[in-house]
């Protein structure tokens, strides 16, 4: 399962970079979305996969019996998703405005400040 996920993550990174290299700014945003998803999935995988064992302590116990999924990695992903959501919302608004001002979505036309 881990190696399957690893391949999937690799594909996501590759697709993200490919999309970011296109000329259209809309595809650029899609690339960014893929990239943040890939990173989140990577944290999930790197922290170790455990199936069907939520990190819950049994009634009357002090510690978790046996192995359990790592809750910290999931907390990280949750935070990263929220942050990614905020930042991407901003990116979408920015690109919407930029397309309005520049009248195109072609990156090649946006070289005025280079």
């Amino acid at each position: 399962m881990t190696s399957l996920l690893a391949i999937l993550i690799g594909c996501l990174y590759a697709a993200a970079i490919y999309m970011m290299l296109r000329r259209s700014v809309v595809k650029l945003v899609i690339g960014l979305i893929l990239l943040s998803n890939a990173a989140n999935l990577l944290i999930f995988t790197a922290a170790g996969l455990e199936r069907g064992v939520p990190p819950l302590i049994e009634e009357g116990q002090q510690v978790i019996a046996g192995t359990a999924a790592d809750p910290l990695a999931q907390a990280l992903i949750l935070t990263a998703i929220v942050i990614g959501f905020g930042v991407l919302a901003f990116a979408v608004v920015l690109i919407h405005r930029a397309c309005e001002v520049v009248q195109t979505d072609d990156m090649n036309e946006m070289k005025g400040t280079d």
Binding site: M20, V25, L28, L32, L35, S36, V87, F90, A91, L94, I95, R97, A98, V101, V102, M107, M110, K111, G112, T113
Partner: peptide, 15 residues
């Protein structure tokens, strides 16, 4: 316009 063009590069590379 210049701000938008600059910001797209800034935002992309920083993200």
């Amino acid at each position: 316009r210049a701000q938008m063009e600059g910001a797209i590069k800034y935002v992309t590379l920083n993200l």
